[in-house]
Design a binder for these strands. Structure first.
Lengths: 207, 207
DNA sequence: CCATCTCTCTACCATTTGGTAGAGAGATTT
DNA sequence: AAATCTCTCTACCAAATGGTAGAGAGATGG
């Protein structure tokens, strides 16, 4: 019965799944252990407490997210194309590993005390994203606006549309792969419209 | 010690607060009771189980949301102005009763089985919103796109920007009232850009 | 061959949790 | 005044939870 994947890693994966899907409080170590075909004490051998396990899950997930992001950002795209490439990537993530986005939502919950741990990891990446937006605005490839706010809008929109399956069902959008692509296509159109620089023929709106 | 507000309602309010902030699993009846200065059994007198209490909270919250929405929709605005009015209203809600949006997020979580209860309430309102978008697109006051998808994008963006305080902090946006207004202003600009009709033969730009 | 290290297990435990049973105190009705 | 109804309480309870202590088994190294 010896699996080739080391136990510690199997625990981490199962925990990410559970925390990201059901949330921290709704996940019990016993249930996790049973799902792994192992005793709870085996989990506690690798991670001294539930909170420590959660922290490790966050670290692991954050590394994955950052890597994915940096990888997609290092292809030298510019303007809306770069934004679209990342949106596309996040959607693939929402399909292949929905629990990852779920974990982000769990961590960023109002009462959470673990946010710091996540933002420690993604902070530099966020800074780079903001710098990118700023640069592209200056170059005239994106509509001018506040980069921080724009980033927040982008984040909310993309993660929301990518992961809020239940809301989508309530709005009559099926969870099929086809519908997912449709959502992404429509979202891309939405973002393009919002991000495209104002028509150079017309004077830029000042405030 | 007799409060003027009836106990049942006080329980409902405190429960909405707790469920919307910490989530269902992380909320215990004992903690709720203590916070109310009452015994757990008093709660169980009005609501036969924790799940029943949660259901009632959803019902109550859904009624509030629908009322707020319909009220804002009955003022006869059109096009982007109507969208902006509702965004404005949701932001006010995010400030005055953040737990309400938190509850929506809790209910629409992937593992949730209670989604039906919420969508039963808001279904008709969602339909009306979709019909509105469709109508305004046909009238040329909004850019043409898939109404369902647009609604989803709008929902995700607005609720996300309005309520993801922790993400905002991670992105260097303070939680002050001034920052909230800034977020709303920026979001409005973002949405106007995305929603404005493509061909501005006579694009009404009201303010 | 003995000692140590790694890993998983059994055996418990204190606390918390949602929930049951039913008593007691006012108020209201008959 | 008696009976009933409304509301909140005390007293429990079985199950689940996170966690401690330490044994056993196999591999590794001196």
């Amino acid at each position: 019965m010896n699996n080739s994947v080391p136990t510690r890693q199997r625990v981490l994966e199962a925990a990410l799944n559970a925390f990201g899907t059901d949330g921290y409080a709704a996940t019990s170590l016993d249930a996790l252990a049973e799902q792994l075909g192992v005793r709870k004490q085996t989990i506690l051998y690798y991670f001294p407490s539930k909170q420590a396990l959660f922290d490790s899950v966050i670290d692991s997930a954050a590394r994955d997210l950052v890597e994915l992001f940096e990888q997609e950002a290092s292809r030298g795209l510019t303007g809306i194309d770069q934004v679209e490439a990342i949106v596309r990537r996040i959607f693939r993530l929402a399909v292949s590993r929905p629990e990852l986005l779920g974990l982000v939502r769990e961590v960023t919950r109002p009462g959470s005390i673990t946010v710091g741990r996540l933002s420690d990891h993604v902070g530099p990446t966020v800074d780079r994203a903001r710098a990118f937006l700023e640069r592209e605005m200056t170059a005239g490839r994106l509509r001018r606006s506040d980069p921080s706010m724009l980033l927040l809008s982008l984040y909310s929109t993309v993660v929301g549309v990518a992961s809020e399956l239940e809301v989508q069902r309530a709005m009559g959008i099926g969870p099929s792969a086809r519908a997912t692509v449709g959502r992404r296509t429509e979202l891309t159109r939405f973002l393009r419209a919002a991000l495209a620089p104002t028509d150079p023929g017309r004077a830029p709106e000042s405030r």
